[in-house]
Nucleic acid binder design. Structure first.
Length: 427
RNA sequence: GGAGAGAUGGCCGAGUAGGUCGAAGGCGCUCGCCUGCUAAGCGAGUAUACUGGGAAACCGGUAUCGAGGGUUCGAAUCCCUCUCUCUCCGCCA
């Protein structure tokens, strides 16, 4: 959510910056609703002030019959207040709805652009390996090795669900542990294991609701939402709290499964593990002082990169352009890993600075010092990394001519020491 | 699922025959005084949001005692609904 006062005082500038996202106009109707709200508020509050003082007078009058005139008068005033407050409520809701559906302002350092095509290459790491044979996509490798069972996943749940087996299941688990250990022990994050379902308030706090309900799995009665990313529960840990300046930055890492409807992506990435309704992810979340959040984004991104580097997976870092960043983000780096089986780079991590956008929505604040007024913290998060896609990258990058797959050295301790996944008898 | 108890300010904790309660008291915290250190002591201050005025410091108004409705001139206090927490029983990983 944007700062109402900022919009009120900088309407044109705000609109201009929002429009770099494409679409828009975003702020139509704001001025009118805002003016209307404040006018109603002023009138209603003046009447309430009157009622309060007269009520005090009534309290002081012992003889009730003497107060009868005032009571009757106030009865009318209360009626008027009620009518005004009813109207105010409607206006307030409309304004709130508008505000909640306005995306974040892109950071000045976010490159301008309309689409994915305009994203900017920041740096790349590692040499894509050359193969003396035709590199296979992971879905072929996975099926041939008997570690990914797409058919049975579909039988159990449907399209975009996969059954991992044997060394595949273990590799997924090994990656989760490897990533968590790296982020906690070496990068200093606090590990948390949050609920995988959350309430509406949490989804609203981080920006998934009200606008993107179609992307979520929703339980009815009682109402819960399956988390589409650990960002939601982990950022909401401090919803409605005032943090201590000295505690910032606060950094959490969490493993969670993620659940996404993937509505509107019919026919896209239908093969393999790339786009699933359920996938695992290790997430990094930081609550930062506003003055430090830019630096924190660089650091957080480097932590995600570190996972790829240790696994020896070539990747590149892209700065997303204004037309491609998410609703709540002001700046985003995507990490794209090289997938030789598909001969392309694919997103494996997305690291964003949300500025105070989520902090304002979710009421996450801090005080500069004990006397200072609370200010909103900046929130940041990034995948560190998407586990399923990391498994994909390992299969495709480290496949051998005989169809086996070498396990990266750093991962072997998590795999019981095995160096290679070979074909198993299929069941 | 059944039967009870509860939800007040950063924390603890008063306050229910409705009125001067944003809310006693304590703790904590901040500033000042005092004490050659430390502890104790003394004094003052110590919520948030919105809104009006002001360049600002600041001043005024409104709201907030789990959430939402209702009764009333007036509600932390009465009524209804919901949420959460705790205790006991049942069930269960």
């Amino acid at each position: 959510m944007l700062d109402m006062k900022y919009i009120r005082e900088n309407l044109e500038e705000a609109e201009r910056r929002l429009c770099t996202r494409g679409g828009g106009p975003y702020l139509d109707g704001f001025r009118q609703l805002d003016d209307r709200r404040r006018a109603l508020l002023r009138e209603s509050e003046a009447l309430k002030a009157l009622r309060n003082t007269v009520s005090e007078e009534i309290a002081r009058i012992k003889d009730k019959s003497q107060a009868q005139a005032k009571i009757l008068e106030m009865r009318e005033v209360s009626q008027k207040i009620k009518g005004m407050d009813d109207e105010l409520k409607v206006v307030d809701e409309e304004l709130q709805n508008l505000l909640m559906t306005i995306p974040n302002l892109p950071s000045p350092s976010t490159p301008a652009g309309r689409s994915e095509q305009d994203n900017v290459l920041v740096r790349s790491w590692g040499e894509p390996r050359s193969f003396s044979f035709q590199a296979k996509p992971h879905w072929e490798l996975g099926e041939e090795l008997g570690i990914l069972d797409f058919e049975r996943g579909a039988k159990l749940a449907g399209a975009r669900f996969t059954l991992y087996r044997g060394a595949g299941a273990r590799l997924e688990r090994a990656l989760i542990n490897f990533m968590l250990d790296l982020h906690t022990i070496e990068h200093g994050y606090d590990e948390v294991l949050p609920p995988f379902m959350v309430n509406r308030d949490s989804m609203t706090g981080t920006g998934q609701l009200p606008k993107f309900e179609d992307d979520l799995f929703r339980m009815v009665d009682p109402e819960y939402f399956l988390i589409p990313t650990a960002e939601v529960p982990v950022t909401n840990i401090h919803r409605g709290e005032i943090l201590k300046r000295d505690d910032l930055p606060i950094s959490y890492t969490a493993y969670t499964p993620c659940f996404r409807r993937e509505a509107g992506s019919y026919g896209k990435d239908t093969r393999g593990l790339i786009r699933q309704h359920q996938f695992n992810k290790v997430e990094l979340v930081t609550f930062a002082h506003p003055a430090e959040s830019d630096a924190v984004l660089e650091r957080l991104t480097s932590h995600a990169e570190n996972v790829l580097q240790r696994l020896g997976l070539p990747y590149r870092v892209m700065a997303l352009c204004s037309g491609d960043i998410g609703f709540s983000a002001s700046k985003t780096y995507d990490l794209e890993v090289w997938l030789p089986g598909q001969n392309c780079y694919r997103e494996i991590s997305s690291c964003s600075n949300f500025g105070d956008f989520q902090g304002r929505r979710a009421g996450i604040r801090f005080r500069e010092d004990d006397k200072a007024k609370p200010e909103f913290v900046h929130t940041l998060n990034g995948s560190g990394l998407a586990v399923g896609r990391t498994l994909v990258a390992i299969l495709e990058n480290f496949q051998q001519q005989d169809g086996s797959v070498l396990i990266p050295e750093k991962l072997r301790p998590y795999m019981g020491g095995i160096e290679r996944i070979g074909a198993r008898s299929s069941v």
